Simulated scan of single mutants.
Amino acid sequence: MNYSKIMFMIMIMLTTLMTISSTNWIGMWIGMEMNLMSFIPFINKNKNLKSSRAMMMYFLAQSIGSIIFLFAILMNSFIMTPIMMNEFIKTAMVIGMAIKLGMAPFHSWMPEMMSNINWNEMMVLMTWQKVAPLYTLSNLMNNWSMYILIILSTIVGAIGGLNQTSMRKIMAYSSINHMGWITAMMITQTKWFMYLLIYSITVAMLCYMMNMHNTYFINQVSTMNESMTEKLTYSILMLSIGGMPPFLGFLPKWMAIQSMINTEMMILMTIMIMMSLLTLFYYMRMISSLMLMYSSMNKWMKYKSPNTMMVSLMLTINMSMPIYSIMSFF
């Protein structure tokens, strides 16, 4: 048992909770800095060139975001409440958080860094590491720069992943696209954490499957010797994360679309839906080789393995969206 790894994981969780529970900007900044220092050893546990490169990229990007955020706080040191801030300081704080989240146009570090780490580290980076900056961003609402970030993130996240063969880079661009959706939901209503939760569950399941089969590039998908159930689960996971109904991943996008209709943000919603279709194209490309490949095996489970239960659970979770929809009416 690696006690250092456990300690850093506990620190990552505690520092995020510290940021969420802070009542002022300095407390949030301290929480995010401690979180950064806890996550860096978690990346650099493998002593090789790739993990060192990823560590430096992450450190520099997060440091620049923190410096801009701290500069804005110190500029505004006498007025500590969000209501009384002027637009310049608020915009600087939004930019600082956008750099930390890897939102476009400050996204360049994210795909490069993600292509140098493994699936477990990617899972933490795409889920838990987003919580603290997103919470801080949610306290900076109704700023003009957020609309630009949403449009650019959805466009860059959709177009950037089209020409990629690395699964990790595709997931990085997917994450950029989803950050745009979460931020749009943040403007229209307060239930953005529901989107993040469902997205985190889907991403965690996908990273588990990729790690289980040691898949890092698209051409490796067709070589995976899987049972029919695993193929189906992998395909459904991809469609779910792309927001295809009736799978679970469509539910948060449905909530976001509904809230944008209620606030009459039609142009923004149209751009986001069109870009979401592009992301669905590269998800389909990731599963087409698996689904169209000829196979004489027609059994659901080819062999009994410890992963059988987990794969079946993933399948059930992703198919449960109609149940949630029915429950929402009551």
Rank of each mutant, 00 (worst) to 15 (best):
P245M: 05
M80L: 15
M110L: 14
M55A: 11
I20R: 00
P133R: 01
M55H: 12
N214D: 13
S77K: 15
M28E: 04
F42C: 03
M34C: 10
S240L: 12
M9R: 13
M1T: 14
K304E: 14
L101D: 03
H107V: 08
I64L: 12
T215E: 03
M110F: 14
G249S: 10
M179A: 14
Q220V: 07
I273W: 11
P246Q: 02
Y283G: 11
S166G: 08
S38M: 02
M126A: 12
L137W: 09
Y195C: 02
S138H: 06
Q62H: 15
Y303T: 14
F69V: 01
T223W: 05
G96Q: 09
M103L: 14
L232Q: 08
K5T: 03
T215W: 06
P322M: 10
M186I: 02
M93G: 05
T202H: 10
M275V: 04
N143G: 01
N116Y: 01
I218R: 04
M244N: 03
K302Q: 10
I89D: 13
M1E: 11
W119I: 04
M286Y: 03
M297N: 12
L239F: 15
M84T: 07
R285A: 12
N44G: 02
Y216M: 03
S138P: 00
M286N: 07
L196D: 05
A184E: 02
S115I: 02
M309W: 07
S312A: 09
M210A: 14
L237R: 09
Y195W: 06
L140W: 02
R53H: 06
I89Y: 13
I10D: 13
G243E: 02
I30H: 01
F69N: 07
M319V: 01
I6L: 15
S174K: 00
G65A: 11
E121Q: 13
L36Q: 05
N116E: 09
I79D: 08
G102L: 09
T270P: 00
K5Y: 08
T308S: 07
C207H: 08
I30K: 01
L292V: 06
M291E: 11
L140A: 07
T183S: 00
L315Y: 04
L268R: 01
Y294S: 15
M297L: 04
M284P: 00
I155W: 01
Y324L: 15
L125V: 05
S138V: 02
M205C: 15
I73A: 03
N142I: 00
W29I: 10
S77T: 15
S227N: 07
F217R: 03
T190P: 03
T154R: 09
L292T: 13
L60A: 15
I257T: 09
M310N: 12
L49F: 06
P82N: 04
I159W: 05
M57W: 13
M209G: 01
F281I: 15
M57Y: 13
L315K: 04
S289D: 12
F247R: 12
G157C: 12
I187K: 02
M171L: 14
T19S: 06
Q62E: 14
S296T: 11
I271N: 03
N163S: 11
W119H: 06
N307L: 08
M327C: 10
Q129E: 06
T183E: 00
K231G: 11
M28C: 10
F106L: 13
F78I: 12
M97A: 08
I26H: 02
V131I: 15
M260F: 03
